[in-house]
């Protein structure tokens, strides 16, 4: 297979496992490129990408931008704070205005679930979802799986627990889809208040005890508590959350095996993960960041190759 089955990356749920394999094979090549002295290829010299961020982002935006630059694409950046969105312009109008400047591809982060799906029905450009509300964050899930594969040789058959704020997390949903498509077993772990009531319908195990979850898994992906998405407090205090769901050296010492620790960032040190764990050999957090560029290069490259000029 040499082409993706989709024309947009709206979510992992729309991908096949062959698509994921193809993205990873392509990412392998780009990972080699970005470790060269000259970290750039001329593949996308005829492509213009608009990075539309309707919600704050630091690392995802930087990672996409770097991936686009490494591929020699032209880039324009847009963030909602500076735009006419605040003046009441609709999303379709905003994006169509940008597209009329002959843009081929849109990378969009948006606070509303389904915003990229909605946009894909109304515009002609290729769309990459860089996170839409609590729906999906497909490139994060791809780079997470890629990093697990790199560390453990395969994702198939591995046991992965996603810990923390599942309720408000797009990373969790995309990861569940991605891991299952590659044959991994998935568990979610967190306080009941932060687990969607019907999460087990996605075919995942549900556990509220962190030690049990860590004993079960090969990989623990620690999510950040998304205070900014909460209407009420879902737990009494950060302190109490950390007591129950923070990964520390102490709890890792209680396990009879070594596990891999991941985190999509940004880390709240001392809350979901202690510094000694984040900086230990268990952690592949910085590998995730590096792989993020290679995986995003692969996604952009593969989707760009489907654009007919």
């Amino acid at each position: 297979m040499s082409a993706l089955s989709v024309n947009h990356l709206l979510g992992i749920k729309y991908l096949t496992s062959d698509d994921i394999d193809l993205i990873f094979e392509t990412a392998d090549q780009f990972k080699e490129v970005i470790n060269r002295p000259i970290k750039k290829v001329p593949s996308l010299r005829d492509i213009t990408v608009a990075n539309l961020f309707f919600e704050n982002s630091t690392r995802t935006k930087l990672s996409f931008e770097l991936a686009e630059k490494r591929l020699s694409a032209d880039i324009i950046n847009f963030s909602a704070a500076q735009s006419s969105v605040k003046k009441g312009e609709t999303l379709i109008d905003t994006v169509n205005n940008i597209l009329s400047m002959k843009v081929d591809m849109v990378v969009m982060r948006h606070p509303n679930p389904g915003a990229c799906v909605f946009l894909s029905k109304h515009i002609s450009a290729t769309i990459i979802n860089a996170g839409d509300g609590a729906h999906e964050h497909p490139t994060q899930a791809l780079l997470d799986s890629y990093s697990i594969k790199e560390k453990l040789g395969t994702v198939n058959g591995k046991k992965v627990v996603i810990v923390g704020d599942i309720l408000h997390s797009r990373v969790a949903l995309s990861n569940i889809y991605a891991l299952q498509k590659q044959g991994a077993e998935v568990m979610v772990c967190g306080p009941k208040t932060l687990l969607p009531k019907y999460i087990s319908s996605l075919g995942v195990q549900v556990e509220t005890n962190l030690l049990k979850a860590l004993n079960w898994c090969d990989v623990a992906n620690m999510l950040r508590v998304q205070n900014e998405r909460m209407e009420v407090n879902y737990f009494p205090s950060t302190r109490e959350y950390a007591q129950q769901y923070g990964v520390s050296r102490e709890i890792l010492n209680k396990l009879d095996k070594e596990i891999v620790i991941m985190h999509p960032g940004p880390i709240n040190r001392g809350v979901e993960i202690t510094s000694d764990v984040a900086d230990s050999q268990h952690s592949i957090i910085l590998n995730q960041v590096e792989n993020g560029v290679a995986v995003r290069m692969a996604v952009i490259y593969l989707l760009a190759s489907k654009i007919k000029h």
């Binding site: 729906h135 019907y198 996605l202």
Partner: peptide, 21 residues
């Protein structure tokens, strides 16, 4: 109901939309 957008069940879980139980 909070700021729920659709029925809270399997579909809302897949869509990441806030549910109205």
């Amino acid at each position: 109901a909070g700021s729920g957008m659709m029925h809270e069940h399997i579909a809302s879980t897949h869509l990441g939309l806030k549910g109205i139980p």
